[in-house]
């Protein structure tokens, strides 16, 4: 067991957890932040993507203790007050989701992409390349790409 403390969506949290606990388990089971999903056992689907110290990472592929001392943002941390984040609004507007299971990871990946590359530099090819680690079983990706294009513009 280790004491793990981190900032999650702006709030400091501290828990005593098993060292083998994954960050995604910490978020979902200790903090009840169930917006972050688990879609696979093999670190390949990206449903679990969150931001740790400002970078998109797979929360199923690091331990909670590894993230101790870090700033974590999950899908629950994007909206301000009652207003959706522009990227969330764009997914809603452009039919970027069907069942919605992959959506939290898609949106966290998309926001990271815009932060990294800049809204002005996002062409379709760049968006598709950057979705390499996010799998969607429903949409066929076209509307996800469209949503990210629109969300990036709205974030600019």
């Amino acid at each position: 067991m280790s004491k793990v403390s981190m900032t999650v969506n702006g709030k400091t949290v501290e828990r005593e957890v098993e060292d083998r606990m994954l960050l995604v388990e910490f978020l979902r089971e200790e903090l009840n932040l169930t917006g972050t999903h688990v879609g696979c056992d093999t670190s390949q689907c990206g449903a679990c993507v969150v931001h740790v110290d400002g970078k998109a990472v797979k929360s199923c592929t690091q331990l909670a203790v590894q993230a101790s001392g870090c700033e974590v943002v999950t899908i629950e941390g994007l909206a301000t007050g009652g207003d959706l984040h522009p990227m969330q609004a764009a997914f809603k507007e452009n039919h970027g989701l069907q069942c919605g299971f992959c959506t939290p990871g898609m949106i966290m990946t998309a926001v990271d992409l815009v932060n990294r590359v800049g809204a002005g530099n996002l062409d379709e090819k760049t968006i598709r390349e950057n979705l390499e680690g996010n799998i969607c079983r429903c949409t066929g990706y076209h509307n996800i790409v469209r949503s990210i294009e629109a969300g990036a513009k709205a974030m600019a």
Binding site: S43, G46, A56, V57, K58, T61, T109, D112, L113, E132
Partner: peptide, 9 residues
Amino acid sequence: IGDPAVRHM
């Protein structure tokens, strides 16, 4: 290598 999230770690 892999995808953006893998490359960040």
